[in-house]
């Protein structure tokens, strides 16, 4: 369930300092989020596609991810095109699909996918440990970093525990169905998962106390901002500024 397909690679993008990538992802996401014009939304999407193409990710896997993520957008398409008054292009009984509605929904779709691709290209390529490390450098509160690091680390352990629990269900011939018995079983499985998590956390805490943990992680490797990172940051910043200016000019 928890996989990081996009974090490994040796592309131009993967070689950029994660701190630069994270800041650029935030800037681009924010810039694209406030776009209010279809053609500029397409420019944002173009920029996102450039990042993803440069990262040379597995296209099939990426498409599959996009499909899942677009469920919410699909719901918008079911309703929004009919929610505008304007030039009718299609009538279905009392519902009128208008040109304005379709164009608006298309803009949201483009913006949504542009931001997702930005996230894939710049964030998901970092790998979680680098993200945690970089956020530490970017002055995110220490406790939040701890939480992020721990939750990520132990989500794999808990996933393994959950798989073990569902294996025992399978061995006992459990079939998921819409029934009280099934719901009670899921309740017990999740309750067991919570208890295992709790007991495990006590062991972890004792282990940390034994090793003299005082709220600080010691890092062995550090990021180094190279000239190529500064160059990449400059190019990406210029792209963002161009989108902002275009958006500002069209109002």
């Amino acid at each position: 369930m928890i996989e990081e397909h996009f974090s490994t690679g040796d592309s131009v993008i993967h070689r950029i300092d994660p701190r630069v990538r994270i800041i650029c992802a935030i800037v681009y996401s924010a810039v694209i989020a406030v776009i209010g014009n279809l053609s500029i939304a397409f420019i944002g999407l173009g920029a996102a596609i450039v990042f993803v193409a440069l990262a040379r990710l597995d296209a099939l896997h990426l498409l599959r991810r996009l499909l899942v993520v677009n469920v919410f957008v699909l719901m918008l398409w079911l309703v929004l095109p009919f929610s505008f008054s304007g030039d009718t292009i299609l009538s279905l009984g009392p519902l009128n699909m208008t040109q304005q509605g379709v164009l608006y929904t298309l803009m949201l779709t483009v913006k949504c996918n542009a931001i997702i691709l930005i996230n894939v290209g710049l964030l998901s390529t970092c790998g979680m440990f680098n993200v945690v490390h970089a956020l530490n450098h970017l002055r995110v509160p220490n406790k939040l970093i701890h939480l992020l690091f721990f939750i990520y680390r132990f989500s794999h352990v808990m996933q393994y525990e959950y798989a073990r629990l569902t294996d025992t269900l399978k061995i006992r011939g459990f079939r998921p169905k819409t029934s009280m018995h099934a719901y009670r079983t899921y309740g017990s499985i999740i309750g067991t998962l919570m208890i295992r998590a709790y007991e495990r956390s006590e062991q972890i805490h004792r282990a940390m106390v034994c090793r003299g943990f005082k709220g600080k992680y010691w890092l062995l490797d550090h990021f180094a901002l190279r000239r190529s990172d500064v160059l990449a940051a400059g190019i990406m910043a210029a792209g963002a500024v161009i989108i902002i200016i275009l958006q500002w000019k069209t109002g």
Binding site: E161, S201, I204
Partner: peptide
């Protein structure tokens, strides 16, 4: 949340994270 209960909060949150991936018919 202090550093005492961080592991408890975190490991339970991981369990929630995994449980939220569970599909119920």
């Amino acid at each position: 949340m202090d550093y005492q209960n961080t592991p408890k909060v975190a490991v339970l949150s991981s369990a929630f994270f995994v449980a939220s991936l569970v599909h119920i018919p």
